[in-house]
């Protein structure tokens, strides 16, 4: 995972990296996608998400999650690191159901954080293998609790940050927030890669 990319991860064009004082003197990740591909992603106006859902993002999610291209976890590592490097509260990526994770062979949320070298903790586990994307809005809003606390963890009276890939109706994040608050968290914020 740590090798330097010579070709764009998305379009396989040769990467032309121009060294600058910034990349030499600061701990920046080397680029792994070309400028043309990077420009197809649209930054989100909201402070709780990095990107807006668009065609480029749809292709990205398809290749990353459906075609299981783990290497794509690196695509947003610089942006994620910029976002989280001054974060003091513990970060909790939304977990996958163990069966789903075995099927996909990796947890896409954890890989994103690992690629960006951001420490995280896990307090939750998923109780159902159903996916939110298979349900419509009404079904999503009515779902019973999606998560429970991991056995033998304690939730401290402090702030936590939940991290998910995409927020559509917000059901997933709402369920996770409720569980943490009930268990004694002081406050729960959430952040997503994509605004749906």
């Amino acid at each position: 995972m740590n090798k330097k990319e010579t070709h764009c991860l998305l379009c396989a064009q040769l990467l032309q990296s121009e060294p600058s004082w910034k990349t030499l003197l600061t701990k920046q990740f080397p680029p792994c996608i070309c400028k043309k591909c990077a420009s197809r992603f649209e930054h989100a106006p909201s402070p709780t998400a990095l990107y807006q859902y668009n065609d480029a993002m749809k292709d990205y999610l398809h290749q990353y999650k459906f075609l299981q291209d783990v290497a794509l976890a690196k695509v947003f590592r610089q942006e994620l690191q910029d976002q989280f490097k001054h974060e003091k509260s513990p970060i909790i990526p939304i977990p996958m159901h163990p069966l789903k994770q075995k099927e996909r062979t990796f947890s896409h949320m954890e890989e994103l954080l690992k690629a960006a070298k951001i420490p995280y903790i896990q307090l939750l586990e998923k109780t159902t293998a159903e996916t939110q994307s298979s349900k419509n809005r009404e079904e999503r809003l009515q779902t019973a609790s999606l998560f429970q606390l991991l056995p033998s963890v304690t939730v401290a009276y402090k702030e936590y940050v939940l991290f998910d890939d995409i927020q559509t109706t917000g059901t997933t994040l709402r369920h996770a927030t409720e569980i943490l608050l009930q268990a004694g968290a002081k406050n729960v914020r959430s952040f997503t890669l994509i605004n749906g």
Partner: peptide, 11 residues
């Protein structure tokens, strides 16, 4: 070798 990626497999 550039076209291979190594990762921690959950399977």
């Amino acid at each position: 070798p550039q076209q291979f990626t190594t990762f921690d497999c959950s399977k």
